[in-house]
Every structure is written in C-alpha cells, then in structure tokens.
Design a protein around this nucleic acid. Sequence first.
DNA 1: CTCGTTTAACTTGCATTCATTTTAAACCCT
DNA 2: AGGGTTTAAAATGAATGCAAGTTAAACGAG
Lengths: 231, 231
Amino acid sequence: MQVKREIPLYEQIYIKLRDSILHEEIKPGERLVDSRIAGQLKVSRGPVREAFRKLEQEGLITNSEGIIEVYVPSLQDVLELYQVRVGLEAVSVYWATHYMTKEQLDELYKSLLETEKAVKLKNLPEVIKLNTYFHESIVSYSKNKRLQLLMSNIRSLVFLYRNTIFNQYNRDHYFLSEHRGILDAIKEREPSLAAKRMELHIYNDMNHFKEYFLMHKEKEAELQNIKKHTE
Amino acid sequence: MQVKREIPLYEQIYIKLRDSILHEEIKPGERLVDSRIAGQLKVSRGPVREAFRKLEQEGLITNSEGIIEVYVPSLQDVLELYQVRVGLEAVSVYWATHYMTKEQLDELYKSLLETEKAVKLKNLPEVIKLNTYFHESIVSYSKNKRLQLLMSNIRSLVFLYRNTIFNQYNRDHYFLSEHRGILDAIKEREPSLAAKRMELHIYNDMNHFKEYFLMHKEKEAELQNIKKHTE
DNA sequence: CTCGTTTAACTTGCATTCATTTTAAACCCT
DNA sequence: AGGGTTTAAAATGAATGCAAGTTAAACGAG
C-alpha cells in the first residue's frame, strides 16, 4: 500500500497563483509581493517565493530587478506563440494520424457537428470550448508527453492574452471547413497532408487574430482622440 | 545611466546547478539534497530550494515525493524531444528564410565547407560544434524569441541524454547534403521547401539516433550475458 | 505652491531555527 | 546469525528574524 504524502505548500501556492492569473483574479501587469501574498494565505514567505520561481520559469510572471509582475504579453509575443503553435500542432496531428482509432476520429467528427450547431446559434462560449477540445484532443492523441506539456504552457499564455486585451475575438465560421479538412486527412491516414492543413489553419487563425487586434487598437486610439478633444 | 543590481544568489545557484548537470559534474539519477548543496556552496537552504524549483519547472530535475533527482531521460523521452524539434525547427527555418540576409546565408555556406573538412579529418568534436552552430543559427534568425527559448531548453535535455548514455553517436556524413539542401532552399527563398527539408533532416537524425541506441543496448546486454556466465 | 530633504514603511534576499518525517544504523533478543 | 525494535542522523517543509535597498510619504525651506 502506498501512503500519499500531502502536497507541499509551495506547490499548492503555485497552483493557486497560476489559476488566479489565468482566471484574471490577478491581472497582467499587477505586481506580486511575496510578503503580502504570504499574509493573505496565512503562510510564510518561503513557499511563496518558491512558487514564484516556478511561475517565473513558466513565463507567467516576470522578474525584473527583483520586481515581480504578472506577464503582459505584447502582440509580438502572441504572434510568436502562434508560430510556435504552428510547428507543434502540425507535429501533433502528424503523429495523431498514426495513432488515432476510428472511434476517436468519429468522436471528433461528432464534436464538429456540435460546433456547427453552436456557430449557428452564435453560442460563442460553446464554440470556444469545442474549438479548444478539437485542438487539445489532437495534441493528446499524438502520444507525445512533452508536446502536451509545451502546448499546455503555450495555451495558458495565449489564453491569458485573449482574455486580457479583449474578451474574445469573433472568428467567422470559416474554421469549420478547415477542421473538417484536417479530420478528413486523418481519416485517409495522410499525416503530411493533415500537418499541412493544420499549419494553414493556425496561420489563418493567427492572421485573423492580428487583424482583429489592430482593428481593436485603432478603435481604442479613436476613443482616446475623442476624449482628448472633449477635455 | 542604469545601475545594475547584483544577481541574486538563487539565480547564481540555479545557473551553477544547471551547468553542473549539463556538464555531467552532477550525473543523471543523482540525488540532490538542498542542505548538502547549501553546505558546499556556503549558503543557506532557502536560495538553493528556489533554484530547485526553477530546475524542476525546466525539467532538468524531478521531484517525486520530495526526493529531488537529476532527470534521467528514457529513449521514449528523447524520441519525443526529436519530434518536438521537428516542429520547432521547421518553423524556425520557415521564418529564417524570410529574414536571413545574403551575408548571413553565405556565412552558413562557409561554415558548411568547414564542416566537410572536419568530417574528412574525422574531427568529431568540431563536427558536432559546427552542426550545433548550423541549427542554432537558423533558430536565432527566425527572430522568434520564444522559439529560441524552447529550443535552448530542449537542446539541454537532448545534450544531457547523449552525453549520458554514450559519448557520441557517430553520424555519417549524409547530413552534409541535407544541410546544403536546406541552405539552397533558403537561398531560393522558398520557406515551405526549407521547412520540409528541415523536417526530413531531423527525422533522419532521429532514426539514426534510435538505431544507434538500440545497437548500443544490444551490445550492453551481450556484455551482461558474458558477465553472468563467467561468474 | 514647488522643490528638495528627511524619514518611515515596505520589499527583497538571505540566514537561522524548528517541527515532522524518513532513513539508516545500532542494538538486543531469541 | 536472523529478525525485529530502538534510536540517532538526516532531510524536507515551513516559520521567523535580520540586513540592505527601494519607495513613497511627510515635512520644511525658499
């Protein structure tokens, strides 16, 4: 019999802070002070500092001259993350094509139908959920643990950014056919084709994100202008 | 003017341990005890523990039930790392093709000639050095900071593994023409072709590594058998 | 009111100390 | 000698204490 050792405090604090950052209870750019957090959580500063080091290595917080702040991704950062995703998800689907069973594939086709429904109903949260499911499934079917680890880190950062700057960017329904194209390539057991389609899909996604971002910034600038003139 | 704050101890310890692991002064599987290291470095345990958390997050050490050990990669792990490399380096060369200047390209061609010389002279350390230079250059020309970060982490782990299990696996000279093919594609400014060739190159590398590994294991098993019979 | 100085609070980094658990060695009894 | 118990050493986890530096507020002189 194995007796489980309880999870150490620094690990619990790490998870708690990580979640708080991803759920925006702690906002990007916000400063983190070990003593303050230790006080809030009623623990000593030691474990809090250890948690900081983990978050720092993960990229969720920055440490510049001893000043700890929640990571604030720039557009450049997000584009770089997308480029990395292109590489990693292409490899994912390449190997997933080798390993996925017919049942697993059918499941994804089914989920795709649900996504279509959700798009028609303009149920955005559901669309996002299903879209995430699509990508995460394929990554997990790659049977590559490291790929999964890297992708989960990246997803955190992209997720953080999206929720930070604007609630969601409204993607059109074009991605449905792209998803279908990827599944079709898997069905035909053509890993390279599947990878190619995944690449294009994510590049498209990236470009839409970029456009939406710039549009958003423009609007913001306009608002600033109006504000200035009325002052 | 900026006055630089001195580097904190935990950071120095992190770097020191990291290097020690990569240079095999600390061997894979070896247990790390914070109090012992603190004693050796004549510091307190606090900063050592913070360094541990960074190394842990980076994947260089494992933490199972509070027992900290240097990461021992399995063959599966290394193959997974190679698969990840395929994705990341393909993306690297894709973007490097956009950004590399003629001078930078010429420099790599020149380095390739040197590699050929080194291969002829069977100067293995030089070959390895130049090979690493080739790949790292392309990653850096991608102008993607995150890509560079991920690749440096991965390189550490692969490096660790190679040096651990056997000193070096002896790759044939075939990779020279593959490198040349990649550079040619960059010269023609064909990002997709360059990416494709990089993929194939790394997959080839991976397969050779695998073969070499299994051969090595076989020999080891034989030696074990002989040992048993003579006991 | 503004600029500069003083000073108090805060923050970080590191060391020391303590409690608990784990490991290993010594010991004893049969 | 073998097996089990006792006990001492070591290791982890966490709290507290302290020094040095930074920030910011209070204060006062011009």
